[in-house]
Design a protein around this nucleic acid. Structure first.
Lengths: 222, 222
DNA sequence: TAGATTGTTAATCGATTAACAATC
DNA sequence: TAGATTGTTAATCGATTAACAATC
C-alpha cells in the first residue's frame, strides 16, 4: 500500500525584477490621484505619465491581484492599497544603518523613508567620537555594540554606508548577528551565504550610463 | 545628372545598457589587480569575483576593442586604460549640483567622484541663507544665478538633489540654460525634450526589490 | 603537447510589445 | 449602441548562456 502525500505547494508566479522596480512609480502616480480625489485611473493614464507601454502597466498591475473594469480603469484607492501590500510598505520595517559618514548622515536625515515603509532604528560607526551622539534624532552606537543591540531588537535589514574596504568584514559580522538583508551603497561586491539578500545601490552603475550617453551627445553635436 | 552623396556613416554597435552598467565593476577589479601588480587577468577571474558568466564578461569586454590572448587572458593595464576611455573617466567632466539639502551636501562631500571622472564645479540652492557659503569646498550660489554661471562655464551635466515638487520646473530652467544631461535623485518623472538625457537614480526602485525579497524570506521561515 | 582560454555563432531564456476577444 | 479599456495569448525583441573551433 502506498500513501501519496501531496505537498500543498502554493503556486506563486515569479515576479520579474523590472516589474517590482516599476511598482513605486505606480504608487507615486496613485498618491497624486488620491490627492486630487480621482476615483479611477486607466493604464493609458499611467503609461502617459510614466512613459511606458499600457500593456506592460496592465501586466505589472495584474501581480497585485486587483482587477480593472473595461472602459473605466482601476479603482485608485483599491489599487493604492494593493500596491502598498505588494511592497509591504503599509507598516514600517525596522533597519539599522552602518557607517555614519556623509552619505550615512544624509540617509539618517531623510524623512521620505517612512513612505517606503522603512524605519531606521539606530546607526553604528567605528569612530568612537561619533558614538553616544544623536544624528537627525537617531542614536549612534559603536559597531562593537551591534551584536547586543540585535539581540534585544529584532531587525532584519542593514543599510551599509561604509567604505569599500570595510564592507566585506562588516557584512559578515552583521550576518553573524542576524541580519538577512542588505542595502549597500558601497560598490564592493559582497560574498555572503545564499540565504542573505543583497541589494546593491551602486552610484557608479548609473553614472556609467550617463557618462557614455553624454559622450555620444558630444560626438553627435560635433 | 545625379550626384550621389554617401554619408560616411560610421557603423557603431549599439551598446546594451546592462553592459554599460557592468563596466565600472570590471574597472574596480582591475584597480585591485594593478595595485597587486598583476599583469594579466582572465574572464574566469572576473566572473568569479563578480558572480557573472565568463562568456558575458568576454562579450562585454569586446566592446572596449581590447583583445585577449588564449590561455593568458587580458593585459590588465591595457584593459584598464580601454575601460577608462570607454566610460570617459580618464579626464574630468564638469557638473553642477542643484539642491543643497542632506543628500546634496553628502554628494558634495564625496571624494570618490574623481574616480568616476566627475567634478562638481558649483552648487545651487533656492535658500538665500545657504548662498555665498562653501560646503565641502564647493561654492553655493542662488539658483537665479545658474543661467549666468552656465554662460561663463560650459557644463553639460546637472545633478538634481531637490524635492520632487520642484524637479520639473527646475529641470526646464536648466535645459534653457544649456544643461543636456541629468542625474536625478528625486523620484519625480521629468518630461523634457528628446535630446536631453536623464539618468534616474531613484532609491525607491532598489528599496522595492529589497522589501519584496525580505517579505518572501519571512514567509519561508514561517 | 595538452589544456586553459579566447572569440563567435547558435540556442535559450525572459521581458516587452502586438493582436484581439470580452465587456462595461 | 459604439468605443474605450481590460485581460490574455501569441509574436517579437534583446540579453544571457551554451557550444565549439581557434590558439597560445
Amino acid at each position: 500500500m502506498y500513501i501519496l502525500v501531496t505537498m500543498n505547494k502554493k503556486i506563486t508566479k515569479v515576479i520579474p525584477i523590472p516589474t517590482i522596480r516599476r511598482m513605486p512609480a505606480y504608487l507615486a502616480v496613485l498618491d497624486e490621484c488620491m490627492a486630487q480625489n480621482r476615483r479611477t485611473i486607466s493604464t493609458t493614464d499611467f503609461a502617459e505619465q510614466l512613459v511606458l507601454n499600457p500593456v506592460q502597466v496592465r501586466k505589472d498591475l495584474a501581480y497585485t491581484g486587483v482587477v480593472g473594469k473595461p472602459k473605466i480603469g482601476y479603482d485608485t484607492s483599491e489599487l493604492h492599497y494593493a500596491l502598498q501590500q505588494f511592497l509591504g510598505w503599509q507598516n514600517l520595517t525596522d533597519a539599522i544603518l552602518v557607517g555614519v559618514g556623509a552619505l550615512g548622515t544624509a540617509l539618517l536625515g531623510y524623512n521620505g523613508f517612512k513612505k517606503f515603509g522603512l524605519n531606521i532604528k539606530a546607526a553604528f560607526d567605528c569612530n568612537e567620537d561619533k558614538c553616544g551622539t544623536t544624528v537627525h534624532g537617531k542614536r549612534i552606537y559603536h559597531i562593537s555594540k551591534v551584536q547586543s543591540f540585535l539581540k534585544k531588537n529584532s531587525v532584519a535589514m542593514a543599510i551599509l554606508t561604509i567604505p569599500e574596504t570595510a564592507a566585506q568584514i562588516t557584512a559578515e559580522k552583521l550576518v553573524g548577528a542576524g541580519i538577512t538583508g542588505f542595502w549597500t551603497f558601497s560598490s564592493a561586491q559582497l560574498h555572503l551565504p545564499a540565504n542573505i539578500f543583497i541589494q546593491y545601490e551602486d552610484l557608479a552603475t548609473g553614472l556609467a550610463v550617463l557618462s557614455v550617453r553624454l559622450k555620444e551627445q558630444q560626438k553627435e553635436s560635433r
